[in-house]
């Protein structure tokens, strides 16, 4: 079952929010690039980047929410999340994208592309601890 969406978006997606990369560098959320996530994950002991391909986007019973089905990593694990339509995901080589970019821009001032089936989003997994 998908996780229930929070009724509000986290504050760090607001345009102008200061994000600290793993090497200590500070960047605004709207200036983040794919390389920032990849390089931060490289120096992380616990986290690694996985590719999550959008397989389906369905409407939800919850108002203003959608259910997104991802195929995650090389094992293509199927994961569903229920999020607000304005929730931004970072797409490889494209940047912030949401199901309703107009609403994301309206609420967060964050420029977004339209999230579509086939888009490959950045996600995280825990590295195997040995």
């Amino acid at each position: 079952a998908p996780l229930s969406p929070s009724s509000t978006l986290p504050p760090y997606f607001m345009k102008g929010s200061i994000i600290q990369l793993a090497d200590g560098e500070l960047k605004r959320v709207e200036d983040l690039r794919t390389e920032d996530f990849l390089q931060s994950a490289e120096v992380s002991r616990e986290l690694k980047i996985d590719s999550s391909t959008v397989e389906r986007i369905d409407s939800s019973k919850t108002p203003d929410a959608v259910i997104i089905q991802f195929s995650v990593g090389e094992h293509k694990a199927q994961v569903c999340v229920e999020v607000l339509v304005e929730y931004p995901f970072f797409v490889f080589g494209q940047g912030w994208s949401s199901c309703c970019p107009d609403r994301t821009t309206q609420l967060l001032a964050l420029s977004c592309a339209k999230l579509s089936v086939g888009d490959v989003c950045i996600s995280l997994t825990l590295k195997s601890l040995r």
Partner: peptide, 25 residues
């Protein structure tokens, strides 16, 4: 004198969803 306001700084990984279970291999 202007009091410096503290600006919240968020870690990079808070922006990325955890979507996959831990792989055991």
């Amino acid at each position: 004198n202007v009091e410096p306001r503290s600006v919240p700084v968020f870690p990079w990984h808070s922006l990325v969803p955890f979507l996959a279970p831990t792989q055991s291999d």
